[in-house]
């Protein structure tokens, strides 16, 4: 496969027509090609319809076998749940909070506001999420830690009970083709929290953390990456 026509393999990939090695090369390409990812997702949705069209009942006994197997199979722990706060929030939030936790109280209330336009079924979740942010900010056992970013500025994390609020301050402003991206580092797994922006005060809330998780910040090209391509400029490791 030539790098020049990799993006035209979206269809072949969606119908699983690439052999093992080609599939790996293409998946590698998907990490860096957002348009390809979007197209693959779209085409894959069609192949699922092709599957439904050939439905055929399995033997009745299979149901009991599967349920029995499921009963003795542990589920993977939840992946970190990532929430990004509304970037259009008023800047006065940042005016000299007495403590990081005090600032987070504001985050919680405005975070709820940001979800006001969401559908009903999400309203409960948003409310619970805002409640958990408030709980973090008021948790007597919360951790508040500000660490330097190696390229300039600082990052503050406030964490309790599996939820972490991350905020940067005075980050070096990047050129237009670069962005700061936050990651959850869990063992060898790197899960994107999302692109935070190009500098200054950036913010994210990460839920579902386990004690061995770390948060890491990298500088990535343009729209961000699926896996980190740059070195960590900051990392916070829960004990």
């Amino acid at each position: 496969m030539s790098i020049f026509d990799l993006h035209t393999f979206t269809g072949a990939y969606a119908v699983d027509a690439l052999d093992g090695e080609e599939r790996e090369v293409f998946e590698e390409h998907l990490h860096t090609c957002r348009a390809c990812r979007d197209e693959v997702d779209e085409l894959t949705a069609i192949t699922a319809r092709l599957a439904v069209a050939v439905s055929s009942p399995p033997p009745a006994a299979l149901r009991q076998q599967v349920l029995a197997e499921v009963a003795r199979t542990a589920q993977l722990p939840p992946a970190p749940v990532v929430t990004r706060l509304d970037e259009r929030r008023p800047q006065q939030w940042y005016r000299q909070p007495a403590t990081a936790a005090a600032a987070l109280m504001l985050v919680a209330s405005v975070g709820l506001g940001a979800y006001a336009f969401d559908q009903d079924k999400r309203a409960d979740e948003a409310e619970q999420r805002a409640g958990r942010i408030t709980a973090v900010a008021t948790d007597p056992d919360r951790i508040e830690r500000t660490v330097p970013v190696s390229t300039g500025g600082t990052g503050t994390v406030v964490a309790a009970d599996g939820t972490a609020i991350f905020r940067t301050s005075e980050l070096e402003t990047l050129t237009e083709d670069r962005v700061y991206q936050l990651w959850v580092l869990r063992g060898d797994e790197r899960r994107s929290v999302g692109v935070l922006g190009r500098g200054g005060q950036l913010e994210a809330v990460v839920e579902g953390l386990i004690p061995t998780d770390a948060l890491g910040l990298t500088v990535e090209p343009g729209g961000g990456s699926v896996q980190p391509t740059g070195p960590l400029v900051l990392s916070v490791t829960p004990a």
Binding site: S150, A160, D161, P238, A239
Partner: peptide
């Protein structure tokens, strides 16, 4: 190559968030 800054942060015992 930027240097990773490692800081020990101890999180309190965590309850499941997806109750």
């Amino acid at each position: 190559m930027a240097v990773a800054t490692l800081v020990d942060v101890t999180l309190s015992p965590m309850a499941s968030l997806r109750r």
